[in-house]
Nucleic acid binder design. Structure first.
Lengths: 213, 213
DNA sequence: CTGTTAAGTGAACATGCGTACACTGAAAAT
DNA sequence: ATTTTCAGTGTACGCATGTTCACTTAACAG
C-alpha cells in the first residue's frame, strides 16, 4: 500500500479523509464544487478513485462534509470574537477587523459558502441555507445580550440578526475576491462593513414606526 | 430539415438561436450553467448537437450571450422606472415595487446573474463582474440627478450607487428564491428593501465625519 | 430555371466519467 | 503465531461528452 508508515490505521484513515476534504476545497476554488469529479478529487488527494468510497459514499456526501467544516470555521469566529476584549469596547470596529482577518485566514471555507450558497446544487445548497438560517438564530441570541438591544422584541432581534448575517456574507464575498497584498482594498472593505453596521444600528430606531403592513 | 416552414432563413436562424438561449437559461435554473452540457442544451432546444455550432463556437460563448441578455433586462428595468411617474413621487417605495415585479417577470435572467456572479467560471464570471461595475457607474449618473443628491461629490455618489446595487442584487436573490404564491413573503421582501434604502439615504449624512482613514 | 449557400443532420471518434469487482498487505484481533 | 479486518489498488465496463466530417435540403441569388 502507498500509506505512510508509523501510523495507526485509524489515524491514517483520518489523514486521508482530511486530504480528500482539502483537495475538494482547493479544486472547488477554481472550478466550483459541482464541476469537480470524484476522479479529480482522488487524483489531487493522492489516492486511487475507488479508495474515495472508503470515506464518502458519493460526491454529495463529501459536499455535505465541506458544508459542516466551513460552518465550523464560521462558528469558531463568533466564539473567538465573544472572548475578544476589544469587542466589548467597540463592537462594530472589532467585528469588521475580525471578519476580514478570519475570512482571509480561511478563504477556502468562506469561498465555498459564498459560491455554493447560490451556485451549488441539491443537498449541498439546501444544507448551506439551513446552516445560514441556524446561524441567524444563533447570532440573534448573542445580539440579544448587547446593552442597546436587550429591550427589543425577539422578532426584531432576529430580523436585525438576519440583516447582519446578510451583510457579513456580502462582506466576506468581497474579502474572498480581494487580490492578495492590497491593504488599501482591505481598509476600504473594513470601512464599508463598519459603515453598514452603523447604518443598521442607527436606522433601527426608526423602524418601529414603519411597521404596519 | 426539421425547421418550421414559411420563414426566411435569417428569421429561422434567429428563432433557433433564441431557442438555444431559452433552453440554456431554463436548464441553468436547476443545474447551474457550468453543469449543463452542449448536448443537453441542444436536446432541450430541439436541435442536434452539431447544429449548436452554427450559432455559438462554444458553451462559453453562449454563456456570454446570456450575460448580455440578462443585463439587457436589468437595464430595461432602470429605463422603465425612470419613465414611471410614481418614481418621482416616492422613489424608495416605487423602486422596491418595481424591483420585485421585474425580478418575478424575468426570474431566469436574475437567477442567472445571481448564480453565475459567484458560481460561474472563467469569462462568464468576469463578464458579470464587469457588467455589474458598469451598472454601478450608470446608476450613479441617474442618482446624481436626484434632488437630495445633486450636491454630493461624484465619489460619494458612486459609492452610494455601489451600495444600492449590492442591495438590489441581494434583494433580487431573495425574490428569485421566493416560492410562488407567497404574497406575504413578497411583502416582507419589499418592506426589507424599502427599509434598507431608507437606511442608506438617512445614514449617508453622517458618513462625511467618518471619512479619515 | 439553375447553381450556390448554409442551417440542421447523423455516424463516428477519443476521452473522462462513476462504479463494480477481485486483489493486496499491513495493522489489529485472536 | 495465526487469522481477520479493511484502507488502498488495478482492471474493466458501460455511458455521456465535445468535436470531426460528409451529408441533405430548403431558401436564396443569378
Amino acid at each position: 500500500m502507498a500509506m505512510e508508515q508509523g501510523f495507526s490505521r485509524q489515524r491514517q484513515k483520518e489523514r486521508t479523509r482530511e486530504a480528500i476534504l482539502a483537495a475538494a476545497l482547493e479544486l472547488s476554488l477554481e472550478h466550483g464544487f459541482a464541476q469537480i469529479s470524484l476522479r479529480h478529487v482522488a487524483r489531487q488527494a493522492g489516492i486511487v478513485p475507488t479508495a474515495f468510497y472508503r470515506h464518502f459514499a458519493s460526491m454529495e456526501e463529501l459536499g455535505l462534509a465541506l458544508v459542516e467544516q466551513s460552518f465550523a470555521t464560521l462558528r469558531q469566529m463568533i466564539r473567538d470574537s465573544q472572548r475578544d476584549p476589544h469587542v466589548f469596547a467597540n463592537i462594530i470596529d472589532a467585528s469588521a477587523d475580525i471578519l476580514v482577518r478570519v475570512v482571509k485566514e480561511n478563504r477556502e471555507h468562506f469561498a465555498f459558502i459564498a459560491r455554493e450558497r447560490f451556485g451549488g446544487q441539491g443537498l449541498v445548497r439546501l444544507a448551506i441555507r439551513h446552516e445560514l438560517d441556524l446561524f441567524v438564530s444563533e447570532l440573534a441570541i448573542v445580539l440579544a445580550r448587547l446593552p442597546n438591544i436587550e429591550n427589543w422584541s425577539s422578532d426584531d432581534v432576529h430580523m436585525v440578526s438576519g440583516l447582519f448575517v446578510r451583510n457579513m456574507v456580502s462582506n466576506a464575498e468581497q474579502v474572498v475576491e480581494m487580490p492578495a497584498n492590497r491593504p488599501d482594498l482591505e481598509q476600504q472593505i473594513k470601512n464599508g462593513a463598519r459603515r453598514q453596521m452603523r447604518l443598521i444600528v442607527i436606522g433601527f430606531k426608526d423602524w418601529q414606526s414603519d411597521a404596519p403592513q
